[in-house]
Amino acid sequence: MKRQIQRAIAITKTLMVVYYAYMLEYRAELLLWVLSGSLPLILMGVWVQAAQGGGNFGLSPLDFTRYFLAVFLVRQFTVVWVIWEFEREVVEGKLSFRLLQPFDPGWHHFISHIAERFARLPFALILIVLFFWLYPQSFWVPSLANALLCLLVVCLAFVLRFAAQYTFAMFSFWIERANAIESFWFLFYLFLSGLIAPVRIFPPLVQEIVKWTPFPYMIDFPASILVGLPVNVGQGLAVMLVWIGLFLALNRRLWRLGLKRYSGMGA
């Protein structure tokens, strides 16, 4: 057991260092990826205008500003692209090399995503500092408890998003263009995660339904905690953990079935 833990630590450390180096090879690309996640900053302008125009949303213009800034930050740390990489590996037969090693290929993707977070962090922080410099009224410091809780929830949100997308990626064994599933899923994610609008301004019935889905826990939930908006922490964490468990169980089942169909195309 001790040896296995030591091995897991050694592998994680090596993969982190190597994939971090890999991510830093693409400096310009990294900056562009950070900027491409600035949709929340555009929506911030829209919603602040709407709130200033007298719209009754239960949130002030300053609340909207802080909420969408938090959304921007959460998005930076929960972006996932595993389905495109995994699909390519299956379709081009590149998965074969990973399958020949005594190590689950999923960890390569998971750890490379985490390494990318560290590479992306300085760019995201520079953008936030720039934002506060341009718009100092929006500056706030979350309480230590909220900051720590947000950190935990952002980590879980990333795991949830990764588990969901990696599970859809497993369909590459059957349909080869599994990213179409992600595109369909993204439609719901876009509207129900809090990316377009805070979930709390939706009609009560929609809110009641949405809170049992995984979507609001990917963005709205951690962003609300960071801003200090009221949330049901216990229920939120429980729903997240249940969805993570469901996706992981489905993922392992599809992995086992999918490997029987794998033909190592092109290799």
Partner: peptide
């Protein structure tokens, strides 16, 4: 890994095979 020195890929293999 195409963009990194071969030694980096070798280190991954070394870690994976213990």
């Amino acid at each position: 890994i195409w963009d990194l020195p071969a030694l980096d890929s070798l280190r991954i293999n070394a870690a994976v095979y213990g």
